[in-house]
Nucleic acid binder design. Structure first.
Lengths: 346, 346
DNA sequence: TTTTTTTACGCAATCGTTTCCGAGAACGAT
DNA sequence: ATCGTTCTCGGAAACGATTGCGTAAAAAAA
């Protein structure tokens, strides 16, 4: 507020009262006479007085605002989750500060630093692909900051966690490919630092195993930036397509991996699903409009956001420190479309 | 910051100094002896002292943070613009607070209220479709808040503005359709309250006029929420497709209008571009992957963000009040793909 | 009428930081 | 030896709000 704002002092001066009286009148304290209250309230409304939240934050050490740290708001999953978070936060009178890390460890540190120093009452966090060392998070947590993790979890932290059943999502997607006759299934995986990466990989492996398909580690390509860079996907796909035994299907572990895989195929004139099938995690809302329409594992992003926000606010408003932490796991659903189903006639 | 933080007082107490000395030492004031400075700085580093920005904001009435108000972060145009904004803001030492209105006038008011009360040094604003009355913005502006408008402008406000040449973008897109043999061009337009809507409509009309095609107001359908609701697009399209003389092409004025128009055609088994051609404003980064690939008018969103942020920060850091306001207009480019080009053989 | 209680309000501290002002000490100049 | 500077530093006010405590006046009880 660079500009002049109305303060409690202005009211006090104008009305010939003390600031304490004005403050109490505004807060409807019992020790202020009805008449004084009326005068103060009316005048406050007249000049459009708004308490200065900065001053309040300084005094009360809380701000009725919560912070969000995600990697990329352009990612549909995160923008949907954010909408979920906002819907409950606003309904409970909290403001929301959104920050993004662009998958950078440094930016994650500075985002958290910013949020904590701006006195947010708590944070919703989904770590970046680069983040291997979690001490910047656990330190903050140990110093009393309320943090709820969602999607990409921090294993060693004792707090509420909200995620999807990545294992089952990956298992189902892989099984779906197998059921459709695909046998040599490549896997574009995300940064190994992420909890979700390992879970999805495990689901993929278990599905192979349950269908007596041998696991081939050469079919699994890690894309450290989760597909943010087209080049890493291109590189991974090039390697897969140069194999003696090329994969006949791809299971991609993240949104950008999935779409960039499609982009790769389109560029290289590789026909989906005839030359290769594709299924991947994605929350895009126009997968039906793609060519071919894209089979996806979809996460209940909005719902995750609402649950995470509710848990956070519950924790913030709890009288005593929370000791009983929830680990919510929501289902991820496979949507079968054209990209992973063999066509009758070629 | 619910949790205990190190303050300047702690340092003063520990070192047997006064807070003023510590403060000055930390700010490298000339009136503090080198030895004292050294001791203070070392101790500050040791206990990881960070100045409390809340207290600073209260004192200095500035926060080195800027606010963003957009309708929807899930919209590619906005998320790209935000990335542009963040890139320059961070490089100049500013933090960014992102808020979204979901095209709601009420939310726009509360967003601005939140940002101003949180003492942001300035705002980047793109108004919501619902916003007809701009007094909440101009009031804030008159009270000294630095505001830069981008994309959707507030005509009556004297400030920097950054937008694209919507007239020419629309003109080019419509001309492109005409050149490809389409004559009866429907137009899905956005809320009439928005500056961009009128400009784009004007470009559309001028293109028709320059090509001796009569303007038919029945071919123009306003979608008040800019396509956010599928139903409004469905409704508009239904009306268009029920006309005696159906349109053979659609020019859509916004991202969601474009994609929801495609969704409509897919649902109704209307083949693009054979039954109807489609071109629209969009910043989607996977239009090539759509079926058919989508012709779009694309805006330099990232660049708009950087320019807007630079102007804002320049204004914030200016010694004297800015009186000379810039009105930057960037080009919008038409990308011709399959959705708007007649195929040789049906 | 005197004492006690209640009512209604003001003073001042507090949150963390900056900064104006003042002041003691050291030092050079006279 | 005395005076004026310069160098360092501390005290206290200020930013806007809340709140514990004190207190004068009014009301109630004695």
């Amino acid at each position: 507020m660079k500009f002049e704002a109305v303060t409690i002092k202005d009211i006090a001066k104008a009305l010939g009262l003390s600031t304490s009286t004005v403050s109490r009148a505004l807060r409807d304290s019992y020790e202020i006479s009805p008449e004084t209250k009326k005068v103060v309230l009316e005048y406050a409304k007249e000049i459009n007085y708004r308490p200065n939240p900065i001053a309040l934050s300084l005094k009360e050490k809380r701000s009725r605002s919560i912070g969000i740290v995600v990697s990329e708001i352009a990612n549909s999953f995160f923008s949907q989750a954010i909408n979920g978070i906002e819907s409950v936060a606003h309904s409970k009178g909290y403001n929301v500060i959104i920050t993004q890390t662009h998958e950078s460890y440094e930016k994650e540190i500075s985002s958290l630093q910013f949020l904590s120093s701006r006195s947010v009452d708590g944070c919703l966090l989904s770590v970046s692909t680069e983040t291997q060392d979690f001490t910047h998070i656990t330190d903050l947590h140990n110093r009393g900051m309320h943090i709820v993790c969602f999607d990409r979890l921090v294993g060693e932290m004792e707090t509420h966690k909200v995620s999807v059943d990545n294992f089952k999502g990956a298992y189902d997607a892989t099984t779906h490919l197998i059921k459709n006759g695909y046998k040599r299934i490549g896997h574009l995986s995300n940064s190994q630092y992420l909890s979700i990466t390992k879970e999805r990989e495990a689901g993929y492996r278990k599905a192979l195993e349950d269908n007596q398909i041998e696991y081939d580690e050469n079919l699994v390509k890690e894309c450290f930036h989760g597909g943010m860079l087209y080049e890493e996907v291109e590189d991974a796909m090039n390697k897969l397509m140069k194999m003696k035994q090329k994969p006949d299907a791809i299971f991609a572990s993240a949104d950008k991996l999935t779409t960039n895989c499609m982009r790769y195929c389109k560029t290289k004139k590789i026909t989906i699903p005839d030359d290769i099938a594709v299924v991947g995690f994605s929350n895009l809302d126009l997968t039906e409009l793609l060519s071919p329409s894209l089979s996806v594992v979809r996460q209940p992003a909005f719902e995750m956001g609402t649950i995470a926000a509710e848990l956070l606010i519950k924790m913030i408003e709890a009288k005593r420190a929370t000791t009983d932490f929830e680990n919510i796991v929501l289902p991820a659903e496979v949507f079968e479309r054209e990209s992973s189903v063999r066509r009758k006639k070629k």
